[in-house]
Computed example of a mutant assay.
Amino acid sequence: MTHAPVHDAGGSKPPLRQRLIGSFRLFFILFIYLWILLGLFVLNQNFERLREGETLALQGFALMNALVLGKVMMLAEHLDFARWLRTRPAIFSILFEALFCTVLFIAFHFVEHWVIGLFRGAAAVDEGPTATVAGVAIIAVVLFVSLIPFFAFKNVTRIIGWPRMRHILFGRPDQPIPGG
């Protein structure tokens, strides 16, 4: 999962259409990953409410948060905060990016609850697992660990290239790996 290059080999920018398609593809991948992740959080945290038939509203919450957090994560991807770690082993970049996004998502969660409290009143804010320090810590750990595979895939793909990664994932094992 790499985004479109800022400059091609000749030093010029790729056409706008190519950059837009690359950005949309990145957002779509981020959105799907986050929707699955947040959807699983919703299923886990709201098991009782799910038995009462509230699945659509709860999954709508996961969908809307995945859209917003996908955009936040896409912005963080484009700002490339882990660029300074590229000369170090990939694990440093993987763990840093997972931690950075975890902190970003937790902060966004609190801002979201603050805004909801402004519009609906403090009583309307859910007092779920994030109401305690231990709850926030548990969610942060689960989120951090859940983001590691995403950033591992991204960083390994950046290092070995998409053609090799595609062959590893979808090619036949008895065929030679391109560029390898």
Rank of each mutant, 00 (worst) to 15 (best):
L104G: 07
P176Q: 02
P163W: 11
A122D: 13
T102L: 00
A107V: 10
A76F: 08
D8M: 04
L20D: 07
F105S: 07
R120K: 15
I106G: 00
I116H: 14
G121S: 14
F153E: 02
D174T: 11
L104T: 15
F170K: 12
S23H: 12
I94W: 05
F81G: 05
P15V: 14
F27C: 04
H113P: 14
V145F: 06
V141S: 01
R19I: 11
R51L: 12
P176Y: 03
W84R: 06
F96L: 02
E77A: 07
F61A: 13
G22P: 12
T87K: 04
G121V: 15
A62T: 15
L104E: 10
I138H: 01
W162M: 14
D174V: 07
N155I: 13
N46E: 04
H7Q: 10
G128C: 03
L50Y: 13
T130P: 06
A107W: 08
V156K: 01
I106Q: 07
P15E: 12
G121F: 15
T2C: 05
V115M: 14
G117A: 12
R19D: 03
R49K: 02
F119C: 05
R86A: 11
S146K: 01
G11A: 03
A4P: 08
G11L: 09
P5C: 06
A62I: 15
L38H: 09
L34N: 00
I94D: 06
A90R: 13
I139L: 02
G11I: 10
P176L: 01
I160W: 00
G53E: 14
K71G: 13
V103D: 10
K71S: 13
F105K: 00
T130N: 03
K154M: 13
F27G: 06
V42G: 01
F92Y: 10
A66W: 06
A82E: 11
T102Q: 00
G53H: 14
L40H: 14
L79G: 02
V141Q: 02
R19K: 11
S93C: 03
L58C: 03
W114I: 06
G128N: 12
G10N: 10
M165S: 10
F100T: 02
L69Q: 02
P15T: 13
A90Q: 08
V125K: 13
E52Y: 09
E97S: 11
A131W: 03
I139E: 01
M74L: 06
A152D: 07
T87Y: 05
L40K: 12
V111C: 03
P163Y: 11
V72G: 00
H7D: 04
G171P: 14
P176H: 07
R120S: 15
F119Q: 08
H113T: 13
D174F: 06
E77D: 08
R172I: 07
T132E: 02
H7L: 11
A152E: 07
R164Q: 11
A122W: 14
M1G: 12
A66V: 08
I160A: 00
P176F: 05
Q45V: 08
I91M: 09
W35K: 13
H109P: 01
P178N: 12
F81C: 05
M1N: 12
I29V: 08
D8N: 08
T102G: 00
A66C: 09
H109A: 03
K71L: 10
A98V: 00
G117P: 15
T87N: 05
T87Q: 04
R158C: 01
L43F: 14
V141Y: 01
